[in-house]
Design a protein around this nucleic acid. Structure first.
Lengths: 108, 108
DNA sequence: TAACTTTGTGAGCATATAGTAATATAGATA
DNA sequence: TATCTATATTACTATATGCTCACAAAGTTA
């Protein structure tokens, strides 16, 4: 593996890792229809505002979301809507898991 | 958010998190052309075998890879090749980042 | 059987991550 | 100005993750 290949895997992994948390995944999903303030995001994902603020920081650092200030509020939105595809890719893995489990259970 | 929605985000996040590590991403990429033994995987990603073994355990638990034993060797392969799409989804995020950085640097 | 190869795992350490409570900051409003 | 609201940040704790070394297990070969 060449050095630049390794670097590229690091960059990709950083973005994927940022998406790999249930709350952050819920946030990404919530933002699919447009921008939302931290306040409403926190309500929707049912987590503390300070915690949501942290998770938004992670998504921001990874380049997944961006924000603009509007008065008191800070509005966040998806920077590249294609991150929504991430969750879709994973569904196939979950489906395969489910099929296996159900096959296994039938043999009980 | 309903309880089953939360559960689903947890399941999805578990799979995404499993993919969100540079070495594991390199392993997934290396397996795209077919099964490989731990030994060769370790050589390719340039990491210690015990470490690679651990990473393979993570991918296995997440349902991303599966294995079969062949003599001394254990051959791993992708269980659902669609995980390869994960890395592709992320490329757009990285491209956006790159464009921004270069725009910024032009103003120096 | 003894030595070797391949893989997995336990122990231990360093670091990263997630969450909470309290505080700081910035803007809006009375 | 004083107060309220929305958000970010600091400090802290608990837990998870990544890595390495050493060793164990299983199969191969001499």
């Amino acid at each position: 593996m060449k050095t630049h290949e390794k670097k590229l895997y690091q960059f990709k992994a950083a973005v994927i890792a940022a998406a790999g948390h249930p709350i952050r995944l819920a946030i990404i999903d919530f933002l699919k229809d447009g921008e939302q303030c931290v306040c409403d995001i926190a309500k929707h994902v049912e987590a503390q505002r300070s915690n949501v603020s942290r998770h938004l920081g992670v998504l921001l650092k990874a380049g997944i979301v961006e924000y603009r200030k509007e008065g008191l509020k800070v509005m966040y939105c998806l920077k590249t809507p294609c991150v929504l595809d991430l969750a879709n890719c994973v569904v196939n893995v979950l489906r395969k898991q489910a099929r296996e489990t159900s096959t296994l259970l039938k043999r009980l």
